[in-house]
Amino acid sequence: MRVLRSAIVALAAAGACVLAAELPASACPGGGCSSGRFCLYENNDYNQGNTDHWLDFVNDDFDLRNNYWSGSNDSIDNEASSMRNRRGCSVRLWQHVGGTGAQSTWANGANDGFLANNAIGDNRASAVDVCV
């Protein structure tokens, strides 16, 4: 699996976004998203006020069914509700596994705290293509 998951669970539990170059690179929990990453969050508004389930990507992933929110056993397939793109390029979310069906593309730097109100968050994100 090419998705990068949280490697610093202890930091996540503390709600801390520790910035240390020697640590494994990872998106910060608590609604942050590090440069170089594309970040999905399970809840609206980057999980503010909700369980802090997130996942970050540097790579393509064309089958989200086998990916899970950080620190949980919940599949992220069709579950994303907000996103931040710090990947350095445009990122495309696809409706179906294999990168098929309709798609939405976000430019580098884009934020959307309420995906559930638009197409891709309405139970439809099943694949990620970075740097389209």
């Binding site: 690179a25 942050g32 440069s35 710090r86 970075v130």
Partner: peptide
Amino acid sequence: DRAGPARWEAWEASLTPRERAALDGT
């Protein structure tokens, strides 16, 4: 496509805390 992510991870690891904070906000 396949080479890109490794380059990005190396770049990300090279960021100092100050650089990361300036890019991503705090």
